[in-house]
Amino acid sequence: MRSAETCLIDAELAAFLESPVMIIVGTGIGGVPEIGRGLGASVEAGGGALHLIVSAWQWPQTVSQARANGAIAVTFARPTDYVTYQVKGQVDRVAPLTPALQDRAARYAAEIVEVLAGLGMPPAITAPWRSRRDLVALRIRPRQVFVQTPGPRAGQVLSSHTA
């Protein structure tokens, strides 16, 4: 049994979330859902929180909804083999990017463009998904992590706060 506070995101999962994977973001307010894309993520030491980088210019509703009620779901999918995890949690802070997160966003953008190009998606086609205007960091307190790799384990809870 995982200890709720410390290990919801263990080192292995953290490494995956910080690797060049596709990041899609779900929020919602007043019963209306919204979709956005993330431009990199960084897991805090100990795995208790996750910083998700989002363009507030390209995805204004995502950021304003996260700010308003904090409810968020983020799916991380590796394009090469479809390994996928969904993290559900609560945004407790929306902040400008620290220098470290700026580096992270730049590195993520450079890496994911390579991965996608390697799969035959030309950089010019994937560039419109990665606006770098008005980047903000959503600090997410994860509540549950689900396996969503297509297959028999899809939808299973990987780890969860039970308290």
Binding site: V25, P33, A73
Partner: peptide, 19 residues
Amino acid sequence: VVPSILCTLASDGTPNISY
């Protein structure tokens, strides 16, 4: 060719997002 993305909300407002 490029996967689409779908987002829905649970009754308590928790989003769910998937390809």
